[in-house]
């Protein structure tokens, strides 16, 4: 690890250069165009694609992580984690020289340390890194009840001091404290009474997030429905199939903002649908296309506490960022 001092120095220099470039870009660039407006109370404008000095990230369906405390965005792709500042410019990266394998997800903990989830299909590892991405230790989920012992998580969220481990295949969620000590577990398929229990259908969860109130949000594309599970295990769902705004084709990522609005990516129609906290449809963000501000097969969505929505796409279009406004 003798390269760490160089990394720190490089990162400081990188930050300085990036900040200067971004300031100039903001000063001399035209205002971002509005991509979609809706009279029901929300609109959004395209800001930028997450980029480095060579341009936008050429990734298909990267995963997104947010560190709202430090205004940083993480993009996970293969065995690389790339970190972006609040202007969407890359400031740091790590992972590719660590030999950890495919990084499925990450969580930035309250102390700034980074927990990496390495998923190898039949097994997984949790690698705790410092803020530079230097592995410090491995942790395990402790006191796991037998009903959850076989799960292999492939999603990870961190909210209000709690870690949420999700096995999208078995549809089970384990909640732990920040040390990995078991606190609660959820069998989403059982709670949601998926139709597969009646008809043998296999319904996968694709999108998953936890909002600021501890509600779990998830999508099941084959049911054309999105779900919200509150901490007291009350389940509500919304959505139905259709291809007009407010209906679902093939849905994917889901996230919520501080006002409780829910954002659902529709991969097939290449839009993001916005609903209020009572599941009333409000607006649709963007549309299918290859121009800046348009979307191609969106998958993951994340919303930060500054009202910015991050959307990962196919066709090597990386992550697009929009600013959400109240109308």
């Amino acid at each position: 690890m003798d390269f760490i001092p160089n990394r720190i120095a490089g990162r400081i220099l990188h930050l300085a250069v990036v900040s200067t470039v971004c300031l100039l870009a903001v000063v001399f660039s035209p205002s971002p165009s509005l991509t979609q407006v809706n009279a029901e109370g929300v609109k959004a404008s395209y800001l930028y694609g997450l980029s480095d000095f060579t341009g936008s990230l050429p990734y298909t369906w990267p995963k997104i992580g947010l560190d709202e405390t430090r205004n940083e965005t993480y993009v996970i792709y293969g065995d690389i984690v790339r970190m972006f500042d609040e202007n969407g410019m890359e400031v740091y990266r790590f992972g590719e020289d660590l030999g950890l394998g495919p990084i499925s997800d990450l969580a930035v903990l309250g102390d700034g340390n980074i927990l990496l989830l390495i998923n190898r299909l039949e097994s997984y590892e949790l690698v705790l890194c410092d803020f530079r991405g230097t592995p410090a230790s491995k942790i395990k989920i402790e006191n796991l009840p037998p009903a959850f012992s076989g799960m292999v998580p492939n999603r990870l969220c961190f909210r209000q001091g709690r870690l949420y481990f999700v096995d999208l295949g078995t549809k089970k969620v384990v909640v732990t404290d920040s040390k990995g000590i078991f606190q609660d577990g959820y069998d989403l398929a059982a709670l949601a009474d998926f139709e597969e229990k009646k008809a043998g259908v296999q319904n996968d969860i694709v999108g998953f997030s936890v909002d600021s109130k501890g509600n779990m949000l998830f999508t099941v594309p084959t049911l054309f429905r999105a779900f919200r599970l509150s901490p007291d295990k009350t389940l509500a769902s919304f959505g139905s199939s259709g291809s007009i705004p407010g209906k679902f084709n093939v849905i994917a990522g889901i996230a919520s903002d501080d006002q409780g609005r829910i954002y659902v990516a529709d991969s097939l129609r290449s839009v993001v649908a916005v609903f209020d906290k009572d599941f009333k449809f409000l607006a649709e963000l963007s549309s299918r296309g290859f121009k800046p501000g348009e979307l191609i097969v969106p998958k993951e969505v994340a919303v930060d506490n500054k009202g910015r929505i991050y959307i990962s796409q196919a066709a090597q279009r990386g992550v697009s960022v929009f600013q959400i406004f109240d109308n």
Binding site: Y59, W61, K63, I76, Y77, G101, S104, Q202, P221, A314
Partner: peptide, 28 residues
């Protein structure tokens, strides 16, 4: 592309037959 929209994932279900690029870095 329309098919892979749903079938492009790894492991969770039998109907997945296209591993996304993000899940298979060099050596994986």
């Amino acid at each position: 592309s329309t098919c892979i929209n749903c079938h492009g994932a790894t492991g969770a279900s039998s109907y997945h037959i296209v591993t996304p690029d993000a899940d298979m870095p060099a050596g994986t």
